[in-house]
């Protein structure tokens, strides 16, 4: 299994698209850092004579959390897309090119092959998600100076990043499942459509919570049960922006954070969901012709 994981890991790193991804991520981080820098610089001028009243603090909290939210939302989006694109071809690509033949004729089981692929992909995508997450936090808290800085405790960050990485974990498992049965193109389309549906479901849930409509919230919950992606992002923001010491923190989340708070059970559901989907991938791949 580890040999397949190592090969999967190496394969992604050796491809030109990986280099392009790294460069584009650096470009994104540079742009984000620039935006934070100017927002922080301009922000310090808010308030008469530098004196910060309640209103100024509220504005500061709102803008700051919005900027952090948008950074994390875009990071979540990039990570999700990369997780989908890398996983949907993981098996189908090798089957169509017949590269898989020489691996599978070795004394390894199909289950080991799928696990190997999953672990390799998950390791690299989780590492990418963690680096991106902390880069955004560091840029925001560091470059933004005092005016942009939010009260986020280290433990909050650790908890938040742990939930943040569940998204690529689930998406890789799901992409792999589709890859055992479908062509790369079909698997990619299905994954992206479901990702979009989860996003819309999450949006409907937020909207329902805001206007207190249980039916809309339920739609979001059902979508999360079918594809627990958006709820993980929402949970992550709740963990990150929710500070017991700061009564204003939760209220300042805005559109890139969350109004409703997915439960801890939902987090565990997503983890179990991912693992079950990997087992389904193994089952699906076990008896198919390659």
């Amino acid at each position: 299994m580890w040999t397949i994981s190592k090969l999967t890991f190496k394969e992604i790193i050796s491809k030109r698209i990986f280099l392009i991804t790294i460069i584009m991520t650096l470009v994104f981080l540079a742009l984000y850092g620039t935006a934070i820098y100017f927002a922080g610089k301009e922000g310090t001028q808010v308030g008469p004579n530098g004196v910060q009243g309640t209103e100024t603090i509220l504005v500061q909290q709102f803008i700051s959390s919005q900027l952090l939210g948008v950074g994390l939302y875009f990071s979540s989006f990039i990570t999700a897309l990369l997780a989908i694109l890398s996983s949907v071809s993981a098996i189908s690509g090798e089957v169509s090119s017949h590269q898989i033949d020489t691996w599978l004729m070795r004394p390894i089981s199909r289950a080991q092959f799928v696990w190997g692929k999953f672990v390799g992909l998950a390791l690299i995508m989780i590492a990418y998600a963690v680096v991106l997450f902390f880069s955004i936090i560091l840029l925001h808290q560091g470059i933004g100076k005092e005016w942009m800085e939010l009260d986020i405790q280290p433990m909050q960050m650790i908890k938040a990043v742990s939930v943040f990485v569940i998204q690529p974990f689930v998406l890789i498992a799901f992409g792999l499942l589709l890859s055992t049965r479908m062509t790369t193109l079909n698997a990619g389309i299905v994954s992206i459509v479901l990702y979009g549906a989860a996003f819309i479901g999450g949006f409907i849930e937020q909207f329902g919570a805001l206007i207190e409509k249980a039916a809309l919230v339920n739609i979001g919950v059902i979508t999360s049960l079918i594809f627990p992606i958006d709820s993980m992002y929402r949970k992550m923001t709740m963990i990150l922006f929710d500070s017991i010491d700061n009564p204003l923190s939760l209220a300042q989340g805005g559109m890139f954070t969350s109004v409703s708070n997915p439960s801890n059970v939902m987090v565990w559901y997503a983890v179990v969901y991912g693992i079950v989907v990997v087992f389904l991938s193994i089952y699906s791949f076990k008896k198919r012709d390659v």
Binding site: K10, S14, K15, H98, Q99, D101
Partner: peptide, 8 residues
């Protein structure tokens, strides 16, 4: 139909 990973 021998095809081996060309990145190796």
């Amino acid at each position: 139909l021998f095809r081996y990973p060309d990145w190796l």
